[in-house]
Simulated assay, not measured.
Amino acid sequence: IEGLGFGLLLGMGSALETLCGQAVGAGQLHTLGVYMQRSWIICLATAVALLPVYMFTDPILRLLRQSPEISAVAGRYARWCVPQLLAYAVNFPMQKFYQAQSRVWVMTLISGAAVGLHALLNWVVVARLGRGLLGAAMVGNASWWLINAAQFLYVVGGSFPEAWTGFSRKAFASLGGFVRLSLASAVMLCLEMWYYTAVIILVGCLKNPEIQVGAVSICMNYNIWTLMVSVGFNAAVSVRVANELGAKHPKAAKFSVVVAVTTSAAVGLVFTLVTLVARKQLPRLFTDDEQVVKEAAKLGYLLAATIGLNSIQPVLSGVAIGAGWQSLVAWVNIGCYYLIGLPLAAVFGFKLKLNATGIWVGMLIGTVLQTVILFVILFRTKWQKEVTAIAI
């Protein structure tokens, strides 16, 4: 459920990566503050529309044939996490505002301090005071809003004299075009993030779902940890491509793509090798349940392949965001993930009785196909033409 809200709002906010990045390249810094405020309006409205999903998580999951025990716990946790949903809507537009202007280290310092405080509060509230899931949710809420407060104070404190000139009524103008680009960005990213959520839902329909979901969740955690590196390259390359296209430097945009893809792939290769070598030991960091450890270890080879692939695929998506190709990639994602990947996962997992392994294989096939298609699109791109089709 959090993946649903997180993915949708991150996607809506990612429209700023295209618009703000190209505006910076074109030297139009005065538009950034207005763009961010428009994105706040759209993202907050989206968060409000998502509230019923958070409030009625339990019955929704039961309709999706999840076990009553998992559904009940997830339902309570989702209700307590509503403040985080609203925090996403405020955070992501600010995040893109910072990134477009290469103020990444400021965000890094703020996030680093918040992570340290978050870990400490979790230890106190969850471990020492025994507040369980409620405590974890409350700490998460507090951490997200502390990040928002620190980033907002930095924005209004005079550090962006050209980009931020205060709140403006212009934020309510031209919302239609902004909404269209935001929706295209949201669909593109959500189709990727929900793909993995759908895998969890499928696994939850298997026999002994607690063990299967536990094993897949452990693997997904490791996948997400390593994915953070390629997501960093995703943000970097989207900004660089948008900046260079806005400045009408097609060769520099192309070179940025080559550097980002090769560097992220090299880092991903290291993570892949570590996963292969330690596939039987890594699950023990999460659980002592031997059944769950055994099931997670079985998925080790597939996890390694997924990590290697995911060191490249998000970077290609970042290029699409910087160049404004969100609608095109959204269609690619629909075909690869939902018309091929998930149906194959269902066939392998249920019809062929390969369980979680089969479901993961189907997912992986969809990701491989999507990555190949994105490579073909990039190979055929005429960057000189792209500078004449930018959003600015």
Rank of each mutant, 00 (worst) to 15 (best):
T381S: 03
L276W: 12
R240F: 05
W105R: 15
T367S: 11
I373W: 15
I218D: 10
N223R: 14
L85N: 02
A330R: 03
D289V: 13
I377K: 13
L183Q: 07
D288P: 02
G112V: 08
I1P: 00
S67H: 10
L85S: 04
T367L: 14
I321H: 09
V239C: 01
A163S: 13
L269W: 02
G112P: 05
A391S: 15
S168M: 10
L339M: 06
R380Y: 14
Y338M: 00
V139P: 06
W164L: 06
V53D: 13
F172Y: 13
F255P: 00
L342D: 00
L206D: 04
N355F: 06
M220I: 15
G232E: 08
A114L: 10
G11Q: 12
A346I: 00
A253E: 06
V82T: 13
V332S: 03
V24W: 12
A278C: 13
L374P: 08
R76W: 09
F172Q: 05
R65I: 01
V199L: 15
C43K: 10
L269G: 07
S174F: 07
A252V: 03
G176Y: 12
L32Y: 10
A242Y: 10
L364Q: 08
Y154D: 11
A304V: 09
L117V: 14
L328Y: 14
A253P: 08
G362S: 00
L50F: 01
T388C: 11
A127S: 10
F178W: 07
M107F: 09
E210S: 15
V155P: 03
G324W: 07
S256G: 11
N223M: 15
P59C: 02
I147K: 06
W40I: 09
L129Q: 14
Y301Q: 04
S159M: 09
R284I: 09
R131N: 14
S168N: 11
V261R: 09
H249E: 08
T57I: 00
S217H: 13
A323I: 01
V104W: 01
S182Q: 13
A330E: 05
V106D: 12
K294L: 12
S311V: 08
V126P: 03
P59L: 07
L191C: 05
A242N: 04
A89M: 11
F172V: 13
N208V: 11
T262N: 04
T108K: 10
L146C: 15
L245H: 08
A45Y: 03
V216T: 15
V319Q: 03
S311F: 01
V270L: 15
G132Q: 14
S14I: 05
F97T: 01
S230I: 06
E2V: 05
A15G: 13
A247P: 01
A173K: 11
T357P: 01
A87V: 12
F255Q: 14
A142W: 08
G75K: 05
S238E: 07
G308K: 12
F375Y: 13
A127N: 07
H118V: 07
I359G: 04
I334E: 05
Q212S: 15
L374Y: 08
L61E: 03
M228P: 01
A47K: 06
T197M: 14
